[in-house]
Design a protein around this nucleic acid. Sequence first.
RNA 1: UCCUCCUUAGCUCAGUUGGUUAGAGCAUUUGACUGUUAAUCAAAGGGUCCCUGGUUCGAGUCCAGGAGGGGGAGCCA
Length: 461
Amino acid sequence: MNHIYIKELLASTEFDREVTAKGWVRTRRGNKNLAFIELNDGSTINSLQIVAELAAFDEQTIKNITTGACISVTGILVKSPGAGQLAEIQAKNIEIYGCSDETYPLQKKGHTLEFLREIAHLRPRTNTFGSVLRIRHALAFAIHKYFNDRGFYNIHTPIITGSDCEGAGEMFAVTTLDLNNVPKNPEGAIDFQQDFFGKETHLTVSGQLEGELAAMALSLIYTFGPTFRAENSNTPRHLAEFWMIEPEMAFYELEDNMNLAEDFLKTVIGHALEHCADDIAFLSKLYDAELKNRLDLIVSEKFQRLTYTEAIDILTASEKKFEFPVKWGSDLQSEHERYLVEQHFHKPVILTHYPKDIKAFYMKQSEDGKTVKAMDVLFPGIGEIIGGSQREDNYDKLLNRIREMGLKEADFWWYLDTRKFGACPHSGFGLGFERLVQFVTGMSNIRDVIPFPRTPKNSEF
RNA sequence: UCCUCCUUAGCUCAGUUGGUUAGAGCAUUUGACUGUUAAUCAAAGGGUCCCUGGUUCGAGUCCAGGAGGGGGAGCCA
């Protein structure tokens, strides 16, 4: 069991000692006398070269060391006499844990990302997915660390919910009813009283409302959990199952919310730049030469802040022909957001004070009576990465909005209660985790930043 | 869901105006080679041309329907 991970072996300067390495064979090459084996154990993108003198091993052992096989190697760690790597192992003993025959789908040549999606059970063994998964972890860790360092508490909000939180988005039904024989009530509708929870339930589309309840006690909280949308969205930016981060802060107003969002993004992206330099360099080289520069820009540039109304003025004055017209009161289209970020300001943008009719019921109404204290953070390439707002904490105004938007007030009795008992100004935002991972890895399709993507017509693995 | 493009060997692709036995590179197998870096060189094996139906003397190629995938849009995170 005492083996050393390749990341540590490659960083070591303690040569001429016996070590054991374990991992999966990327490729084997060689000649009549020597075999060179590239071994990778996922601890780093870099592989370790194993050198085996053919005379010292039986023929079958060498033959079994094929691409994809899993082996354990014991030998002497030495300075490599060849170019291309600093260290290598001169093998003394090789144990084969698992063979891999010629039907192994991963070749040492490049594969398309589309093909790799079809073999999602094996794609973690590629350089690209190794990098993506290590970066994904680093970001998740940095997010927890960021909030923990600042006194936030992580709240586990429910995955099964009895409320249609924001009244937006299709939801997945959760039921134990027999779908071949659904019980009906006297009115002919489905009788959910006979269902497991005694009422209609769904998978959550957001933990925000429950998060707000916790913030009204612990002051600073965040959620980081799975989220589900049953929309028939077929795009490189949507998943049916994804992970969302939603901080909620008592006593924060819109300005504080913006400051937190900006500092948060800079810190977690900075963490990835510092701890995943090899992986980011690899992804830059293979997919997107501008990746590193773009990440550096996020960390160094102050985000541009402006109101929705100011943005409309800029778009109107731009004289650029947009496919969709620019009009106060309409939501901004992708092309509008991208123009602001990529062509006008050349840096991240935070837009605030959207018209109330295009935003959710819980957002704090502004003094002007027309807008709400919303904020969207827009990034180059991907558009909106964060959406948030100060929350409406006035009981009457909130109830009014619920009624105006045709929501059932009975469903929100517990949410309304927080505005009845000890209400206070508070704010929060939501961040789609995979969108962040997409931005940091430069992967253009969101299906390539989650191990096993869930999308319409796809639930394999 | 809408628009658009694509589907030929394990992978990436070529395949002429519809015409004999469907090709290449890589991968695989075998052989050669004294330190290779996606090693190199030589040879061999490998095909439900996405599926169903149609047109035609003849369909990988043309037509219709279906399935799957890519890109764009909408919804959104």
